[in-house]
Computed example of a mutant assay.
Amino acid sequence: MPESTPLLDIRNLSYTAKKKKIIKSITFAVHHGETLTVLGPNGSGKSTLLRLIGGLITPSAGDLFYRGGDLHAMPRKELSKTVSLVPQTPSVQFEFSAAEIVSMGAFASSKKLDPIQLEDVMTRLKIYHLKDMPIQSLSAGERQRCYIARTLLADSPLMMLDEPMSFQDVLGRNVLKEEIKRLKTACKTLIITSHDFNFVKALSDRCLLLDKGDVKYLGRHEPLFAGDLIAETFGIDS
């Protein structure tokens, strides 16, 4: 069960870009061992929220606390060990092999690369047979699983996955669902964005519903899906 003291405490967080408020003074906490799923229509601020937490962009206002300390006051190297983010579409700029991409997880956490761990994580994500292939030659789903494997190898206390199912076929979706179950069993703290309501219902401890940068709901999924709020927010005919 999650601890009572938040692992991540976000207070009055805002982000404005080009005079447009993307995130509007939101407050919430994430507890150790919790899986929080962030829902919302396209353009609601989900990816921006993850980038703010990961330190990739600077908040316009508000505070982010990790175990009570200022998250972004951490040295960059320490922050990279503490928080990891797999974007929905990771950029591929160099001709690394799949194994080299995954191996970077060990370097990000300043660990010595363990070939057995590398093989294990790539095998679990069904990409070990691709280990020598150039990352740019892989399908979008395979590349996505390589970057997720890199984060798993880094083993940071707070892992964030932005739409991890977006490019996955049936095999990939099942593999990632099993991996998330394994992480939950290991009491890892996860923040995941998703449009897959079945995934949310199966694996979330709590849901955060964003709409136009505002929090419309925060809590367990049962009340959220029992009412009309999901349909109203996503424009779904009920």
Rank of each mutant, 00 (worst) to 15 (best):
P2H: 08
P6A: 09
P6V: 11
S14V: 04
Y15D: 00
T16H: 11
I23N: 04
T27R: 15
V30W: 05
H31R: 11
G33P: 02
L36P: 00
L36Y: 01
V38F: 02
N42A: 13
G43K: 02
K46N: 04
S47R: 15
S47Y: 11
L52T: 03
I53R: 10
G54C: 11
L56N: 13
T58G: 08
T58S: 14
A61F: 03
G62N: 01
L64A: 08
R67T: 04
R67H: 14
A73F: 09
L79A: 15
L79E: 14
K81V: 00
T82S: 11
V86P: 13
T89P: 03
T89G: 08
P90N: 09
V102S: 06
S103M: 04
S109F: 02
L125N: 03
H129T: 08
H129L: 01
K131T: 10
P134I: 06
I135K: 11
L138E: 14
A149R: 14
R150A: 06
L152I: 07
P157S: 07
L158V: 10
M159L: 13
M160R: 13
L161E: 07
E163V: 15
M165P: 00
S166R: 08
G172C: 11
V175F: 10
L176P: 00
K177Q: 12
E178D: 13
E178L: 15
I180E: 01
K181L: 15
K181G: 01
A186M: 15
C187E: 02
C187M: 09
L190S: 05
I191A: 07
I191T: 09
H195C: 07
L208H: 03
D211Y: 06
D214F: 03
G219R: 06
P223H: 03
L224K: 03
A231Y: 05
G235Q: 06
I236T: 13
S238G: 12
